[in-house]
Design a binder for these strands. Sequence first.
DNA 1: CTGAAAGCGCTTACAG
DNA 2: CTGAAAGCGCTTACAG
Lengths: 333, 333
Amino acid sequence: MSRTTINDIAALAGVSKGTVSRVLNGHPRVSERSREAVWRAIEQTGYRANVHARSLATGRNNAIALLIAAASDQLFSDPTFAELIEGVRDGLLETDLSLVILMGGSETEDHRTVSYIKAGHVDGLIHLNPFFDDAITAGLPDCALPLVLCGPRPPIPLPRQNWVVTLDDAGGVRQALDHLASRGAHKIAMIGGDPRGVSATVRFQAYRDWLGASFDPDLFEPGDYGAGSGQVALARILDRHPRVDAVFCASDRMAIGALETAYRRGLHVPEDLLVMGFDDHRIAALADPPLSTIRQPIREIGRTAVQTLLAAIAGETPSDKVFPTHLVVRDST
Amino acid sequence: MSRTTINDIAALAGVSKGTVSRVLNGHPRVSERSREAVWRAIEQTGYRANVHARSLATGRNNAIALLIAAASDQLFSDPTFAELIEGVRDGLLETDLSLVILMGGSETEDHRTVSYIKAGHVDGLIHLNPFFDDAITAGLPDCALPLVLCGPRPPIPLPRQNWVVTLDDAGGVRQALDHLASRGAHKIAMIGGDPRGVSATVRFQAYRDWLGASFDPDLFEPGDYGAGSGQVALARILDRHPRVDAVFCASDRMAIGALETAYRRGLHVPEDLLVMGFDDHRIAALADPPLSTIRQPIREIGRTAVQTLLAAIAGETPSDKVFPTHLVVRDST
DNA sequence: CTGAAAGCGCTTACAG
DNA sequence: CTGAAAGCGCTTACAG
């Protein structure tokens, strides 16, 4: 009843276990004859190599970790985030690496996560949502593992081996604002993301820079990327500035919340108010009215993050990747 | 620069590596003197035991897998689900087990997940959302690992060692319906969950049974637990039965969608229509009007699932656990 | 192309 | 209480 090991296969195939190992690892110099015998034995027994023995012998874990700074409700309820994970899984599909998801948030969790990484369980790291102050990133600067960040590089100490795979946040914001301006908007408000997030801050700065001297802090309101926060944020902005003629939201879900507030206040979109989202998630096209937005190749970002990490683990020298965004015009503008 | 091993610690502490190992594993018969010397050496060097070597020697993985049948947007956007994961992490906090999250959905992913499990990477399994037809469960009946299901036991072949840790779905439904009836409702509609899910089906059956002869299929509409689906579902029900006087939703988010539809159709809640949710998630109390609902101890379910699994792994014989639900009355009824 | 052997870093009876 | 030794299941130079 005990698991079958490499010795069983060697005996069955009539070769040494060294040869079995070579077949298993696709070593080129193995005779056709041995190779066949070994595979036959493997199929017969349903043998699988013991991962721990292999890791012990090779010094590699064959696993990478997915880091999530704050595993809040907001994050889990972010469809964009789910798609990013999908992309990561896409990228892993052809490898035999396993994915360990590590979440921070509370002090205990942050500590556990850092400690898990330092215990040497994984060969590389992908950080899904870097925060300025997140304890995971803070605990990692002296870590020798390669790290890929899905988002702008935060201005804090990072492990030596770090790469960024992200979208052009600032460019996307400018595309949105240019479009709203071209539609005749004069007073453009913005609903931003969680200010602890690096990418949310970059988007806010791009908004401020674009407006230049005419930037008015009262026209900006932070949210949490969820619909509820968009609803509340637009209400606040309208209370301060009833004459706003456009609102740019840093996520489609917040834009949908904003549509709701506009509806409740009797404002017609796009006649009285232009509304734009960000992401081009599926819900954008289904909104009422369909939402103009900025499309980002989120799934591809996840996929590319894995490729970059694998290259780094293999000792190559990949480069940062910044994906362009695309303007998608629908009825809301 | 190479990692410090148990030999380094043994040398530093002036003992054999056997003794180091005993200290590490909390073996009782070690002299105070040795114990102190070993701990001092460990702190000095920041030593951590190599998990693969340990697993190879003990035959245990010190890891459990969290199974997720369909990692769809809907699921990720389910706050209840996020809380279940929180509970699992709570339960794991004091152990040194690691958590591997395995997701199914596509054929490739289901296959990979089953294959990962069979490769012997983990010591036990927790299935978060069993589906009737999910390929993960289907691939597991001949698996020797203990499995804990967070949901009703599906009527399909399961591994020998399986336990259920869940809430009393049927009881919760009856609590809701009794309450609505006590408020004078005569025509109670229901918006259910994804019919592929076992728990959604149990809730539907409880609804049908409660109504008995007066059950009318036209008063039932399935959803996906999300707000959008609740919105659409209530609209459909009202189109067929304008005189419905109460609607019971299998999630708070669907109930919020239903509130939206009621609002748009000019129906006042609770005067014209009673609306109830399920879960008692934070959003229920914040809804307008605040939502009556059925509270389930979701986080505790996650925590208990881990405890049950750990007991099973340790060779004990835990029992199934079914948590009662509680009626929470607010303004929507 | 392939076998014998050493080694990866732990744990755990076995003696003492 | 503790050391020496065998063993967990692989990989990989080293010879041949």
